[in-house]
Design a protein around this nucleic acid. Structure first.
Lengths: 97, 97
DNA sequence: TCATAAGTTGCGCAAGAACGCAAGTGCGGG
DNA sequence: CCCGCACTTGCGTTCTTGCGCAACTTATGA
């Protein structure tokens, strides 16, 4: 059953996840990752921001557990940690109409 | 179809919704409203914060379109604007684990 | 070993958000 | 008409975030 009332701690973490979703560029990142993993540089291009800035956004998403990183030689690839993340994006979309 | 890529404007609004969800007290408010409408004072009690503070949180939720207000005489009742809001809360919960 | 490419981290700043408190608004009762 | 109750708004403070820039780390290749 889904109706057990969350503890305060759980709510704090849920809120942290929501805050991680609460930036247009980060939403754009997650949408871009829907099709598969991408490097930091490619993500910076799509979202059109500087690489250090993208790295920080990715750190936020990583800290919230929304993406995971994989290093291949010199470049780091990010991917969605959970399909539910995309679900959340779509739900936000439909609520924001 | 849900797969059409959102415009920048849509993403900005989605992010605003996510930010409105990004506070433990506001999540608590939304969960409290799951069972039906409540007054500002009752909400302040459950979330254990002062009434002016609650009023401000409710203003944030209202601005994001997550709740609606109904005035009955002296007291104002708030309710969820859309069942999807609860869905979003549960999804956050399950992502935050 | 040195140079270069890809990311990350540190720092300073400016904008935004949460909170407490005081003052204002709006409605109902006496 | 005035008082009191339920909320809202304004204000000042403090904490957090997003960003740009520079410096650092790590891996690749000459």
């Amino acid at each position: 059953m889904i109706g057990t009332s969350p503890t305060e701690d759980t709510r704090v973490r849920s809120a942290a996840v929501a805050r991680a979703l609460g930036d247009p560029k980060r939403l754009c990142v997650l949408e871009s990752l829907a099709a598969g993993e991408l490097s930091v540089g490619e993500l910076a291009l799509r979202v059109s921001c500087q690489v250090p800035n993208m790295s920080q956004h990715l750190a936020v998403l990583r800290a919230a557990g929304l993406v995971t990183a994989r290093r291949d030689g010199n470049t780091v690839f990010y991917r969605l940690a959970d399909p539910k993340v995309l679900e959340a994006c779509h739900l936000l979309l439909s609520i924001a109409r």
